[in-house]
Amino acid sequence: MKVSRFFQSLVVVFLLGIARLSFAGDTAHVKDFNVGETIMHHIGDSHEWHFATVGQTHVTIPLPVIVYNPEKGLDMFMASNFKDATGHMNLMDAQYGDYVIHHDKIHHKNEAIHVMDFSITKNVVSLMISAALLLYIFFTIAKRYKKNALSAPSGMQSFFEPIINYLIEEVAKPAIGDKYKKYLPYLLTVFFFIWFNNLLGLVPGGANLTGNIAVTLCLAVLTFLITNLSGNGYYWKHILWTPGVPLPLRVIILPIEVVGVFTKPLSLMIRLFANITAGHIIILSFIGLIFIFKSVLMAPVSIGFGLFMSFMELFVAIMQAYIFTLLSAMYIGSAVEVHDHADHDHGH
């Protein structure tokens, strides 16, 4: 028993040794592998959808570029038109027509002209995929409800119904109160949008959409608009003339309250962006350890921690969607609620 285990470990060590040797041979010509740059590239947006690099060949899908040029109007072409001297697609430093691309950013060759990039980037494609997924799943479910509202849920319906029910009963109703119905569509959409995109981001090769500040900015601005456009007299009175505050203190309270209106959505934006991006960076860093140590012996450690983080991220994916939805509901709730107790505790 003991002896066989000893031999097993010997074999493992031997195999690892071989792997290390062969790997070392490979690393010889990938000398300046920059882990930080690779990670930033992975979590950032791109004009191509890069899946893998096998040897010197990149497995990648070039994406369409749409540029608004103040001189010519809209310009459309494929990103694969950016080629280097060897004729390969190069998004780091290349030129095509009037445009140059530098570190995946498109500029006009005349630096005085500023172009606007409306390209269907990796994130936009991912956004479209998630939109299609959302529409497909919830239209399918809605069809079943329309057919027979009273039948027991089945299939996808039975998976999503408790979640929808939870969001209605435990998030929207307690946070908003009587008027919750009006805000349900936004809350449900935002929850499933964030959750789906968080999960899609965890798929190897997936885009880091919810870890992109433009996306979280858009969602936070929507919550900000809904909150403040539906704010009632009480809400504005609370901000501009907080009840029960002595006059000298108002000088301090008023700016704090006004700033609070903006910090709430700002915190929403940064929380989602930072959490998802950080998760991606951590997983990629664990994998990057293999390349930093230049040893395949690091692989089990990286895989172990990476696996652990991936499971963690599965939880974070729904957690962040839930937090964003809950806080949005609470902000909206504070804007629409009608009450009369003076020391109302603000959300944060």
């Binding site: 930033m40 979590i43 950032g44 947006d45 749409i66 606007m116 990039d117 409306f118 390209s119 269907i120 980037t121 994130n123 936009v124 956004l127 992109n212 500040i213 433009a214 996306v215 900015l217 858009c218 962006f273 991006t277």
Partner: peptide, 11 residues
């Protein structure tokens, strides 16, 4: 990383 891209924001 922390500068919103106008194109993505639009989409």
């Amino acid at each position: 990383l922390v500068t919103p891209e106008f194109g993505l924001l639009f989409w």
